[in-house]
Amino acid sequence: MSNLVSADAAAIIAVTFCVLMGALAVFQAALIAGAPIGQFAWGGQDRILPTSKRIGSATSIALYAAFALLVLQHAGLIAVIAWPEFADIAIWVLAAYFVLGIIMNGISRSVPERWTMAPLCAVLAVLTVLVALG
């Protein structure tokens, strides 16, 4: 089967994905620093996150970096994963993760989280699928 997304398009999509991951990392860093924007994350129950959720935000930043590396690798922009077969499977797992994120954020009790993070997960899911098809 030929690639459904050109290499140039996949590269642009991958960079766009990484920009969004970077923005989310900045958001999570702000939460860690105590910014009163917790209504947009972790169920929206805390304006300022408690320590346990700040640890979750730090973990999220590390995951975002791994997600970015995976997407960049799959788009052919970098080569950091030694097993291409792993990357071929992991990219679809990542897409499924973002689909799950749409659902989980969509049922959040926090209206701000529902209206920002669910659509953002939808965009990330689409970008991931497009890179996967490249």
Rank of each mutant, 00 (worst) to 15 (best):
G38L: 07
T116C: 09
I102G: 11
S60N: 12
Y97I: 07
A95Q: 04
L4Q: 15
V99A: 14
G43W: 09
V93S: 05
F17Y: 14
V123Y: 12
I81L: 15
C18P: 00
H74E: 13
Y64W: 02
C18K: 00
V93G: 10
I81H: 08
S57P: 02
A65I: 14
D8F: 08
A23I: 11
P36I: 12
P112N: 09
A25N: 02
S110A: 09
A14Y: 03
L49M: 14
F17E: 03
I102E: 06
K53E: 14
A30P: 01
A65K: 01
A41M: 02
F17D: 06
V19H: 01
Q28G: 00
V111G: 03
V111S: 07
V99S: 03
V26C: 02
V80N: 05
P50K: 13
R114D: 10
I48W: 04
L72G: 02
L94A: 10
F17Q: 03
Q39R: 14
F17T: 04
A62R: 01
I55T: 09
V19K: 06
W115F: 12
A23F: 08
L77D: 00
D8Q: 14
A30F: 05
L4S: 15
A35F: 08
G101T: 04
A62I: 12
L49P: 15
S52D: 11
P36M: 12
F40L: 13
M21H: 01
I81G: 04
A25H: 00
V5K: 12
I13H: 08
L31C: 13
L63H: 02
A35T: 02
N3D: 15
I61G: 00
Q39K: 13
V5I: 15
G34T: 07
D88T: 12
A75V: 06
C121I: 01
K53F: 09
I103R: 08
I61A: 01
A14E: 05
L120C: 08
P84C: 00
L4I: 15
I12Q: 05
A30C: 14
N3F: 15
A96S: 06
S60E: 01
I81R: 09
F98P: 05
I13N: 08
A29N: 03
T16P: 10
V19P: 04
R109A: 13
A87D: 11
V80S: 03
Q39H: 05
C18D: 06
A9M: 14
Q28C: 00
V15I: 15
L100A: 08
P112Y: 07
S110T: 10
S108F: 00
I13S: 06
E85N: 15
I61V: 09
